[in-house]
Measured scan of single mutants.
Amino acid sequence: AEKTGIVNVSSSLNAREGASTSSKVIGSLSGNTKVTIVGEEGAFYKIEYKGSHGYVAKEYIKDIKDE
């Protein structure tokens, strides 16, 4: 099942092309942005936001229960 997560940073969080800190940054998400978690790979979540996919470090995403 898809989960919703909240970007848990004070400034912004980089979204990357792949599940690695050396992957190209494809965008950034500001704190408290809601994202859909579609998968996980190592220390990263694969997320969907406004129709695009990217990878973000798990430690900066807070899971919330689907309402």
Rank of each mutant, 00 (worst) to 15 (best):
A1R: 13
A1T: 13
E2I: 15
E2R: 15
E2T: 15
G5W: 06
G5A: 04
G5S: 04
I6K: 05
I6D: 02
I6R: 08
V7Q: 02
N8E: 07
N8Q: 09
N8K: 12
N8W: 11
V9C: 15
S10G: 10
S10A: 12
S10M: 12
S11M: 10
S11H: 13
S11R: 11
S12C: 15
S12G: 12
L13W: 03
L13Q: 02
N14L: 15
N14Q: 14
A15F: 15
A15E: 01
A15I: 15
R16W: 15
R16T: 10
R16Q: 07
E17W: 08
E17K: 07
E17N: 07
E17M: 08
E17I: 08
E17D: 09
E17L: 08
A19T: 07
S20P: 03
S20T: 10
T21W: 15
T21Y: 14
S22A: 11
S22E: 12
S23G: 04
K24Y: 05
K24S: 08
K24C: 09
K24E: 06
V25W: 06
V25E: 04
V25T: 06
V25Q: 03
V25A: 06
V25G: 03
V25D: 02
I26P: 01
G27H: 05
G27I: 11
G27W: 14
G27D: 02
S28A: 10
S28R: 14
S30C: 14
T33W: 08
T33C: 11
T33Q: 10
T33L: 06
V35P: 02
V35C: 05
V35I: 08
T36K: 13
T36V: 14
I37S: 01
V38H: 04
V38D: 01
G39V: 02
G39Q: 03
E40M: 07
E41S: 09
G42I: 01
A43G: 11
F44C: 06
K46N: 01
K46A: 04
I47E: 00
I47Q: 01
I47P: 00
E48W: 13
E48M: 14
E48V: 14
Y49I: 07
Y49N: 00
G51D: 07
S52C: 13
S52F: 13
H53D: 03
H53N: 05
H53G: 04
G54Y: 13
G54K: 03
G54T: 04
Y55Q: 00
Y55E: 00
Y55F: 10
Y55W: 12
Y55H: 00
Y55K: 00
V56N: 00
A57N: 08
K58M: 07
E59V: 11
E59L: 09
Y60G: 08
Y60T: 04
I61L: 06
I61P: 00
K62T: 14
K62Y: 09
K62L: 11
D63Y: 12
D63F: 14
D63H: 09
I64M: 07
K65S: 13
K65V: 12
K65P: 08
K65D: 09
D66H: 11
D66Q: 11
D66E: 12
D66V: 14
E67S: 13
E67M: 13
E67H: 12
E67Q: 11
